[in-house]
Simulated assay, not measured.
Amino acid sequence: MSKIDSDDDFTEFAGTVFWPRSTADLTDTTRCPACHSRLRSAVCSNCALDLRHPAAALLLTASTDAAASLARRTALIGRIRFDVAEALAAERVALRAAAAAPKPVPIPVPLPPAAAPSPVSAPVSAPVSAPVSAPVLAPVPAPAAPAARTVRPPRAPLKGATASVPGAPRRSSVQILLLLVGVTLVSVAAIFFITVAWIYAGHEARSAIIALFTVAALVTAGVLRRKRLVATAEGIGALVVVLVLLDAWALRQNDLFGLAAADGAAYWASLW
């Protein structure tokens, strides 16, 4: 079979072929059937497809058939969805009708009339038996009192044994490591921020910023301590120590209260 006898052998020579965005692109003769660009002549200016070829009519017929097949496919999908929706709607209506229907009331069945009473015969005297003496009951012994149970005093805990507190949170080494890393990073950030404030701000702004940071850290540590976050509060406390040292250094550098003239060793020893 030669390439002239079958169109399937030319698939490898198709080049650029874009999938249509809708079925209208398949039947639109003003656009290129390969790249869907707007046609200005019989030869596409984008992909150079020459539609003056005799097979262009067959291409249009195949495109029209493909559009019809895709439309049929979409219609079948719509039919499936419509039928399923109708079935569900009918089922819901049937359930509502069954719930709204009145319940049957039981009808009482009349009882048959009672039979006529039989004639009463004369009473027959029963023979009188000899008097029967009442049985003598033997005395029942009283239940014995339960033996007294000896109560042992609770044992004292062994030396060295730690009492386990229920509900106490346990922290792993990973959490403690992350806490230390976080406190270290916050300390570095505080030092960097104070350095920037030292360069661009005045004496009053520097003192206010450092004091504000220290007070905020102290308040945060106290709140965390009251919420039983002991490890986090201790980490913030370490940050407070760093901030207090920075406060002391800033007070000396700003020469507040004449601290710049004080002896350096005595000044830093007084902080400890």
Rank of each mutant, 00 (worst) to 15 (best):
A189E: 07
S172L: 00
A75M: 06
G258N: 10
A233V: 05
Q253T: 04
I107H: 06
A116F: 12
S118Q: 15
A189V: 03
E234I: 07
G264E: 03
R206T: 05
V188W: 13
T29K: 14
T150Y: 14
A144G: 05
S164H: 01
K227R: 15
A75P: 03
W268N: 01
D263S: 02
G235Q: 06
P131I: 07
S63V: 02
V242I: 13
R73H: 14
P123H: 08
A205I: 12
S270E: 07
A90L: 09
A67P: 05
A156E: 13
W19Q: 11
E12A: 03
D9T: 12
S45V: 07
P169V: 02
D247M: 11
V230P: 00
T195F: 13
E204N: 10
L239M: 13
V140Y: 11
W268S: 00
A211V: 05
I107G: 01
I80P: 01
M1C: 08
D263H: 01
R155F: 02
C47T: 01
A248W: 15
G237E: 09
A138P: 06
A168L: 13
L137F: 14
I209A: 11
D83V: 12
V140H: 08
G15W: 04
V244S: 12
V128C: 03
A114N: 11
R225C: 01
I209C: 03
H203G: 03
L59Q: 06
H203L: 07
A260E: 07
F193L: 12
D255E: 07
R96Q: 12
D247Q: 12
S207W: 09
L49V: 03
C32T: 03
A14P: 00
L51N: 05
A161H: 11
A130C: 02
A269R: 15
R96V: 05
H53Q: 07
L60C: 04
M1S: 12
T162I: 04
E204Y: 14
A87N: 09
K159N: 02
L76A: 15
S172C: 00
G237C: 05
T27C: 03
A57M: 07
V186K: 13
S207Y: 14
A145M: 10
I107A: 05
S133P: 09
L245M: 13
L212V: 04
A130P: 08
A147P: 02
G167D: 06
A201D: 13
T195Q: 12
T61L: 13
A134G: 04
L137G: 05
R252F: 01
V151M: 05
A144I: 09
V230K: 04
V242D: 14
L39N: 06
L256Q: 12
A145Q: 11
L271I: 11
A75C: 00
A130V: 07
D8R: 15
C47A: 00
T27V: 15
S125Q: 14
W198P: 01
